[in-house]
């Protein structure tokens, strides 16, 4: 039996379609954001230079707001330091598991579903991939690409990003993820229904990940609802204003390798 040429061409096109789609899905599933950064890393280094200049001009024009932000951060840190002094002995401060590297934000996107930041520190300054990025009032993201003088941070404002968070200083914990439908909001999920939740309760990092230290305030409870009759989903208003982000701290977990070795060794 002779197969009509039109059917053969149609089958060929279908196979080509499947092949191209498979190639795309492969790239997406291999975390395409990082691949893209690596592919155009040199271009990003050049762009970084110009973004840095632009950020410097922008920073000058918004000095008043930056000062107010820094003053608020300062007050919060003073308060935390005071609490620390009252509750601990000097011996507790040695061998702190986390070290911090300050960096300036030179590029920051907030209006898309895949937001990112570029900071002005790279591997020349001790930055490595998979380090957490924070401010005193929130987790900002995770380092996903590093060049000599700049780093690419996958922002918390990404639909695929989650942070382990807890209610109050000792409360229940669950994953906190960004809510792209409501500006400045996130959702804390998997909280047992029987727990007493109050509006304006503070949400903190749980410390159950090697990216972020515990007890960084993230936001306050703005509302909650029961899901499937089992769990609570909590609406959290984020404390950090991502739009006016100027300075961040990169977190170096000194025990990271040891933790990773343990985790990988038990798999």
């Amino acid at each position: 039996m002779r197969i009509p040429p039109s059917l053969l061409f149609g089958l060929g096109r279908f196979l080509l379609f499947i092949l191209l789609e498979a190639a795309c899905i492969y790239m997406v599933s291999n975390n395409g954001i990082i691949q893209r950064y690596r592919l155009i890393g040199k271009l990003r280094e050049v762009q970084g230079f110009f973004w840095e200049k632009y950020a410097a001009i922008n920073e000058y024009s918004s000095l008043k707001n930056a000062n107010e932000g820094l003053a608020a951060q300062n007050a919060l840190l003073m308060h935390q330091l005071q609490q620390f002094k009252e509750n601990t002995t000097p011996a507790d401060t040695t061998d702190a598991p986390f070290a911090f590297i300050t960096a300036k934000v030179i590029r920051n996107t907030v209006g898309t579903a895949h937001n990112y930041l570029i900071i002005d520190k790279g591997y020349n300054h001790g930055i490595k991939e998979d380090m957490g990025v924070i401010t005193p009032t929130g987790t900002i993201g995770i380092i996903r690409g590093v060049s000599a003088n700049y780093s690419y941070v996958l922002s918390f404002l990404n639909t695929s990003q989650q942070v382990s968070a807890k209610i109050g200083n000792d409360g229940a914990f669950g994953p906190l993820s960004w809510n792209p439908q409501r500006q400045g909001m996130a959702t804390l999920t998997e909280i047992p229904q029987h727990l007493q939740i109050n509006l304006n309760d503070t949400i903190y990092t749980s410390g159950y990940s090697s990216f972020f230290p515990p007890d960084i305030p993230l936001g306050v409870v703005e509302g909650f609802r029961t899901v499937n009759g089992v769990h609570l989903n909590i609406d959290v208003r984020l404390l950090e204003e991502f739009r006016s982000l100027k300075h961040v701290m990169v977190v170096e977990n000194k025990n990271r390798e040891e933790i990773d070795m343990l985790v990988n060794g038990t798999r």
Partner: peptide
Amino acid sequence: FALGLCIDLFSDGILGLNAAALV
């Protein structure tokens, strides 16, 4: 496919995402 990949490379997105949708 080629146009989608170019867009993925030069805009802020995930490599392969625009290409998959465009194909």
